[in-house]
Nucleic acid binder design. Structure first.
Lengths: 307, 307
DNA sequence: AAAAATACTTGACTAAGTCAACTAATTAAC
DNA sequence: GTTAATTAGTTGACTTAGTCAAGTATTTTT
């Protein structure tokens, strides 16, 4: 088990301890309402799932059947729920909230909302949004529903240019040690791209995960027959899961559709993974020369592919 | 309470329910070790905080004093901890783990790690990383450790150019309806700034909150006597808390130090709040003309200030 | 038709957590 | 420098939360 993974475990366990406290706080204030945490959870589930049965609740809330049975009996006694025996299966009883139950739940809801407002109220909206986004992500990933939220889009939106430049600047600095001159270079070339953008010749694709840009590639036409592939990158956290291949496929398919004869690209020897992908797509190295811009020595390479 | 905020509450409460389940699972498996969740938390805290006292634990873990007292007694009986009375204050007893205590904690640790591995083991590493990052963010924000972490820095780091351009592109689109041509324009002017950057004449400041860029301003020298103020913006969520004033003050102070005689800036009539700040700083409008770039009609204005 | 399984309930129990009254040491007030 | 108030920690008596296994009624499998 490497240190990085150990660090990961540390972070998650730290978070678990932290969130145990947070939930404890929320729970504490729940106590001001005659509801135990378990009771509140049960009430919530019944209120939010039409025709749920006791069995379903025990599974969903990981609760002992006997315990739940008593909670339900209590709710029935207080007039919060009623049961109706299933006609198809007489062992089952569908649970529903009465009007009193709905009122109790609404009260609980607003209390809970107030509690959460207390928790996040002092934060700037910006950060509240970020928290919500992080929570959504964690929930999505841990519940295994994450599937593939990664999408590829063509449309250029305000802010994209900056994000693309930022990704290039920060990633190449981190991974290859390039300085800000490289980012300025991207800035300039991308400006030229935007300025001369011609939908008949040029195209750009962004890979996104939940609205966050995680990769890109573009095609720039040079005349009728030659196209250049530019700004290809994948965020390191998302490498090795086929996004790069998808982007390249899109780009090359576009080139074929546009009847380009040749696609070329410029890269440096630092870009090991990218180069492997270029090679896999059929690109061949045709030129190589030393360069010292961007803060350190590297080999500038040109690859090309005849379609 | 607007719908957006309500959605936020929904998300957070959903997450709380979700994470209650997650923690419940972790807890369940803790049961295979003779430790209750509370006991495990206590053991962990003692192991990770030199010389903690019972009082501190009750506060940190929000635990009843009497309950804790009994848990501690149990630990002492089992030989997991020992206490030493404080010399400075005889009411206090410092708690420490014995060797057996440390062993028990280590066992618990490895069990907990295994549990978490079960939770995240099936996810691709990049998603694990993202989860960790999200957790760190939530913890930081909710624990209020992000407080007013707003700082102003001068140093230009890789990624800054892109972020600045992104902020301009997305904010002006959102607030003024400018299209991507405006972002391209920023791209170009900022490239020129970087290309010609001369520390003796030029300077840029970034306002950050927890590493996130939330505002910026720059001074570009035009000869010995005239300076231009550019790329002034504050993220809308951070307006009205003096960051803009701080940035302007920094910029104008720099101009004075450099013995510039005049500072000018160009803006549009859309920039109501910024213009108010310029006026407050002593800038006067000296020119105005209509312009139609960036997708809609607006007035381009020039302001200047003699130092 | 008998046996196995399922949905839910009940009784008897243990563990978890709370509350208030209690020392013993320390600090503040007069 | 004594008295009163506070604080750290303990203890007894209690309530609540949660578990386990045996129970009933119904359905499914063989």
């Amino acid at each position: 088990m490497d240190t990085e993974h150990l660090h990961l475990l540390q972070v998650i366990r730290g978070f678990n301890r932290f969130y145990t406290n947070i939930l404890g706080l929320v729970d504490l204030h729940l106590l001001g309402t005659d509801f135990s945490l378990s009771e509140a959870r049960v009430l919530f589930e019944i209120g939010n799932h039409k025709n749920c049965t006791a069995k379903e609740l025990t599974e969903k809330l990981k609760m002992d059947g006997g315990y739940l049975s008593r909670i339900l009996k209590g709710f029935e006694r207080k007039g919060f729920i009623y049961r109706s025996q299933s006609e198809a299966d007489g062992r089952k009883y569908f649970l529903s909230l009465t009007r009193e139950g709905r009122e109790a739940l609404a009260k609980l809801d607003s209390l809970s909302n107030r509690q959460i407002n207390k928790m996040i109220g002092d934060l700037p909206p910006f950060k509240q949004q970020i928290i919500a986004k992080c929570m959504t992500t964690i929930e999505k990933y841990l519940s295994g529903e994450s599937g593939s939220t990664i999408t590829i889009r063509q449309e250029l939106r305000p802010g994209d240019a900056g994000t693309l430049i930022h990704l290039h600047g920060s990633l190449y600095a981190r991974e290859c040690g390039y300085n800000y001159v490289f980012e300025a270079y991207v800035c300039n070339t991308f400006f030229e791209f935007l300025k001369n953008y011609d939908p008949g010749k040029d195209r750009i694709w962004f890979a996104e995960d939940g609205g966050q840009m995680i990769g890109a590639v573009a095609i720039v036409g040079h005349g009728e027959e030659i196209a250049q592939l530019r700004w290809f990158l994948i965020h390191p956290d998302y490498r090795g899961c086929g996004i790069g291949r998808r982007l390249l496929r899109e780009a090359l398919q576009f080139c074929k559709n546009q009847k380009y004869q040749k696609v070329f690209l410029e890269t440096t020897d630092d870009q090991k993974t990218a180069i492997q992908m270029y090679r896999n797509a059929g690109f061949k190295k045709v030129e190589e020369k030393e360069d010292c811009s961007w803060g350190l020595r590297h080999m500038e390479q040109t690859y090309e592919l005849y379609l």
